[in-house]
């Protein structure tokens, strides 16, 4: 299931938030997006899953234009922020609901949740707290788990590592690697933490002010390269 972005621009006033002439994320590729605040990562993600209207261009998942069709929703798991969480439900009820949408039976959902249990690190499940009363980190665990629940072929996560406790960060990384190798899931992941992305993603694109400035296949040198870039960008910005 490949993701293809064609001629995508999003402009706010005279500020161009995203400008991507062409980007093809191959089927089964783990794709990382890095960039400073305001680089346009979240805007790009929202455009990909049809949460905002681009000025030009279109995004195709497995050949389906995301703004004109609905099929992609059945195999695309996404979690960008708390706006994806139904706050008045318990985590278990939310999982049941998401499962039901995808036609998964109750017993299967239980099994799936058990598989994802390590992510929760003993929190979240079995509590009597509604999702809206959970801490930020635990909310994120619920959101990511819900995106993974129905064995998506495409996975889109914005800043999945932020706010997570160290144990969960490590387990999530392992889980993502497993999904790529065993299931061939196409992944689109953004992060401020470049060490996490380089560890999980085989390809990394660097976004700056809405433009793709680097497109790298991850190697042992990548982390150093990126660190150098961001240190430089920081210096350049403070000199301005």
């Amino acid at each position: 299931m490949e993701i293809s972005i064609q001629n995508l621009t999003k402009v706010y006033g005279d500020y161009t938030a995203v400008n991507i002439p062409e980007l093809l994320i191959h089927s089964g590729e783990s794709f990382g997006l890095v960039g400073n605040n305001g680089a346009g990562k979240t805007t790009l993600f929202r455009a990909v899953i049809d949460l905002l209207e681009p000025n030009t261009g279109c995004v195709y998942i497995d050949g389906n234009a995301t703004n004109a069709t609905e099929q992609w929703k059945s195999f695309t798991g996404s979690y960008l922020d708390e706006n994806f969480l139904v706050g008045h439900l318990l985590p278990e009820e939310y999982f049941d609901f998401v499962g039901a949408i995808h036609g998964i039976g109750d017993a299967d959902i239980k099994a799936k949740i058990e598989m994802l249990e390590p992510l929760f690190n003993g929190e979240v499940l079995g509590g009597k707290k509604l999702i809206r009363d959970l801490s930020k980190g635990n909310q994120k665990k619920v959101g990511i788990a819900a995106a993974l629940l129905f064995d998506p072929k495409v996975l889109i996560l914005d800043e999945p590592f932020a706010n997570l406790d160290p144990s969960t960060q490590i387990r999530l990384k392992e889980l993502l690697k497993m999904l790529k190798h065993d299931r061939g899931v196409t992944m689109l992941i953004s992060s401020h933490d470049i060490s996490h992305v380089t560890e999980v993603c085989e390809r990394i694109v660097l976004l700056e002010k809405g433009n793709m400035v680097k497109d790298i296949s991850t190697s042992s040198e990548t982390l150093k390269d990126l660190e150098k870039y961001f240190a430089g960008a920081g210096v350049a910005e403070s000199a301005e």
Partner: peptide
């Protein structure tokens, strides 16, 4: 309103 992005992205017409 607090989870409208969920409403839009979920697999429900």
């Amino acid at each position: 309103g607090s989870y409208f992005d969920h409403v839009l992205t979920r697999n429900v017409s």
